[in-house]
Each structure stands twice: as C-alpha cells, then as structure tokens.
C-alpha cells in the first residue's frame, strides 16, 4: 500500500533523511518514534505530497487523509464547515458542497462522537475535540490511508486514550491503513502493528511492534534509561523512563 524506496529529503540544502526504505501493508498501523527534529514530520509530509524527495520514490496506493499537528483555523469556521472541506477532492473547481457532502460530513462527525459540536466554532473546541474533528475531516475525503502527525501531542491522558481508541476502531472496522508519529511508546504498544524508530537521518529500525519496540532500543533512541514495567494482570506492560541522570 505504501512503498518507500531509498528516500532522501533535503530542505533548503540541509539533508533531513537519507536512504529510507520501508513498506507498509494494507490494514496495518505504523507508529513512528524518534527524537524531536529527527524528521518524522518531513517523512509524513513526503507521503502526503507536501515535500518532494531529493532522491528515491514514495508510492502510496490509495487516497490519503492527513491530520496535521495542532491545527488552528485563521477564521472562525464552524466544525461542520471544517469537516466539509475534507470533501475537496470530490467537489469541482466552481462547485460547493451538496446535500450528499453534508451527509458524509455529518456521518463522520457522528462516528467521531462529535456530531453535537457541528455548529460550534472550531477554534473554541478543546484540543482533544479539535483532533477528533480533524480526523472526521480526513475521513470525509473517503481516504484509505490515514496519516496523523503527533495526534496526541498536547493532549491529556483522557483525550490521548480517546484518540488512540478511535484509531484502533477505525483500523478494525474500516480496515484503514494508519500511520502516526508520537513521542509515547505506549501509543505504539496500544494500536500499532509495526513501528519505525528513527535514530538519525540515515539510521532507523523498522519492523513488527514486538521486535522493534523494546526497552533496549528505546533506551538508545532517547538516551534515557527506559525499563519495561508490567501494569495490569494478564501481561499488559508499558515503558517507564527514568529521568535521574
């Protein structure tokens, strides 16, 4: 579904990524982890078509829906207006949303459990609600691949769990292929089938969650001691960092 071959990216002559190769199969969920500034957003932007590879190829089979990091609108659009804009690919140049588009937008707003907010001003919503509205906008494009740039950053635990649960449900019920970047390994454990650990512009590890998302790998990735910790009966575990130096 997504095929990245020897991808290299430079932004204003500064190399960001060099020689990345990975394949994401249909229906899988990929969590992307890495330090700040390592190029997670750049990689996602290449998939969405917002930045051009300087070498290599990126192929995506299927329509992509994109949820950017912490989106704010310049004007006081209503939630419904924002979600309707997800229909851009289906509405001709000189056209406007029709009844069918309103129906699709309302459907996904309800699926995201924010249908009651549709007449509210988007910018007045909480961070978590805004994230759900942006997911509804991406879904309104009737995408097969959902790409989210740090969907849980700046969200509290409750909202993080809502977003992560939503991703899990979308993957299970609609078979969506999902790629998201995150700073919480826990998110990867919760929903991902695959993980990409970005170490620097040319070193990375990519594979199934159980192979790649290990305490050793995370310790070297973040340069902070990280241990595996059981937190629930039945073997569910999490990663606990230690901030003592």
């Amino acid at each position: 579904m997504i095929d990245i071959q020897n991808l290299s990216v430079s932004l204003s002559d500064k190399p960001i990524l060099a020689d990345y190769s990975l394949q994401v199969a249909p229906g899988s969920v990929l969590a992307i982890l890495g330090a700040n500034g390592v190029g997670k957003t750049t990689l996602l932007n290449c998939l969405v078509g917002l930045c051009k590879p300087s070498a290599g190829t990126v192929t995506a089979r299927g329509r992509i829906g994109y949820v950017p990091q912490l989106f704010q609108s310049a004007f006081a659009f209503s939630v419904l207006d924002i979600v309707l804009m997800g229909r851009a690919r289906h509405i001709p140049l000189f056209g406007a949303p029709r009844a069918q588009d309103y129906g699709i937008a309302s459907k996904y707003l309800k699926l995201m459990k924010v249908g009651h907010l549709k007449d509210r001003a988007f910018n007045e919503l909480s961070g978590g609600q805004r994230q759900l509205v942006m997911i509804a906008q991406a879904l309104s494009s009737e995408c097969e691949i959902l790409i989210l740039d740090e969907p849980c950053s700046a969200l509290d635990y409750k909202n993080q769990s809502i977003v992560i649960d939503t991703l899990r449900e979308l993957n299970a019920s609609m078979g969506l292929t999902i790629l998201f970047s995150t700073h919480a390994p826990q998110h990867g454990l919760e929903v991902a089938s695959h993980v990409l650990l970005m170490r620097d512009r040319q070193r990375y590890e990519f594979g199934a969650v159980e192979d790649v998302l290990t305490a050793e790998n995370l310790t070297t990735l973040y340069d902070v001691p990280i241990a595996k910790a059981a937190f629930a009966p039945g073997g569910k575990f999490t990663f606990a960092p230690s901030f003592e130096r």
């Binding site: 969405v48 994109y66 950017p68 609108s73 659009f77």
Partner: peptide, 17 residues
Amino acid sequence: YQINILSLGEQKARALG
C-alpha cells in the same frame, strides 16, 4: 468553496487536494 479551503493555509489546502 475553494477560498474556504485556501483560508486554512497552503499546506493544509494542498494536503486536502
């Protein structure tokens, strides 16, 4: 409708297609 989308910013508009 296109102006609505462009008022979200060029990057966002491009991602929306």
